[in-house]
Design a protein around this nucleic acid. Sequence first.
DNA 1: ACACAAACGAGAGCACCGCTCTTGCTATGC
DNA 2: GCATAGCAAGAGCGGTGCTCTCGTTTGTGT
Lengths: 244, 244
Amino acid sequence: MSTAHGARARARIEVTAAIKDEARRQLAAQGAARLSLRAVARELGMVSSALYRYFPSRDDLLTALIIDAYDSLGERAEAAHESAATDPFRRWIAVCEAVRGWALDHPHEYALIYGSPVPGYTAPDTTVPSAARVGLLLLGIARDAHHGSGLAGPALPSELRPEAERMAADLAPDLPPEVVSALVAAWAQLYGLVGFELFGQFHRVVEDRARFFRHAVGQLARGVGLVPGSAEDAAPGGGVLPGE
Amino acid sequence: MSTAHGARARARIEVTAAIKDEARRQLAAQGAARLSLRAVARELGMVSSALYRYFPSRDDLLTALIIDAYDSLGERAEAAHESAATDPFRRWIAVCEAVRGWALDHPHEYALIYGSPVPGYTAPDTTVPSAARVGLLLLGIARDAHHGSGLAGPALPSELRPEAERMAADLAPDLPPEVVSALVAAWAQLYGLVGFELFGQFHRVVEDRARFFRHAVGQLARGVGLVPGSAEDAAPGGGVLPGE
DNA sequence: ACACAAACGAGAGCACCGCTCTTGCTATGC
DNA sequence: GCATAGCAAGAGCGGTGCTCTCGTTTGTGT
């Protein structure tokens, strides 16, 4: 069913990809607000109206780029997660640094997905699965650590307990509510650190940003109960969890 | 020297203010990218070219709005700081909640200053003093607490020590480097929390956002060594610091 | 008091934008 | 073999930021 319909369908796929590629080029070069359908069409040797056969509007093209950006970030984070040591703390650091690295490599795409949303535009639900990948990764690290050596977040004030329990039930019923709550906060705070660096807020404030970031996300990890050199890592070479 | 030059100068000030007011209205209604010089001029009953007598370009108008936004946020944070209890921990919470409140009240202006910068546009140094106000406020709280009951941040890894000492020398030589480092991180993380809420990343994740935020910034405070109910607050009615 | 220069508002115009509609052409499916 | 659906192209609409020119108004120095 995929390539069944011959030349026409294949051409459509190719043209669609070419449009997205050129759009991504312009996005990377000048940012989202300067992405112009007409310029994309011009560069591709077509007339602007022809482009509307493939994307019904500029916003739809942007949405496609947003999903691609989330996936690109997600893949990089997942790759970092897999090639890191099994120690949850180190994996946490690796994932966070992958996020930062991707953001520095693709500033305009990062701005597109984590900066101010394009005005008057709200991302459709299509983006949700791609957008969730990094969050799920962090959640998975916490889960591994919890099932390994146990995890204890900071004490939960009684006024937040219902909300924390609700979040835990939604996101990770096998984790303590205080860990889930701390995790969500750390998730947001991670993007605060990345955003401030990327958008120039650290200008003349933080210079050695890589080291600063590494330390800050390490503290973030501690906030959810992760500590360096936990049980799993003490057993060298082992991929299998001792406990459980 | 200010109003000395009579009617013309006064008219200029009034027109400039009217332009900014109308621009702010459009900004609040539709966001920065949809702010149109022509629409502002139209609403003011002038022709678009006349507007260039007051702002040399759209970016310059945006810059003026950015500075105003920073100042508006700064004023609100400072007001919250002053009307809060003297206990540094409570002051910290109050300032953070003021930032969140302002952001929720002025989402597009928040996006303008802390979201992705307008593409191809970098804020001039004119904005720096206004932009620094909230940061300085948080710094002041930490300083008060430190001079009161002392403050101890988390241990600093040796690789970050030079950078932390440099930051401390620049920002607050009277504070321990680990506190300054934690403070800068908390500052960025605060905006991560606000941004995620404002830009919809907490959609279907965090529901009771006010309580969640309050707890999260409380944890942020602990990260720089602030704890609830510290020394100054234990002595009732006292504005004078006991130690030092 | 008068002249000169600076500031100003209005208008026309340039190049660009997103998007729509119509017009022919061509490949696909019955 | 032919109707149909997908396609590229062009013209055009209303909008944008910005520039330039043109009279007019206003403030100032002599």
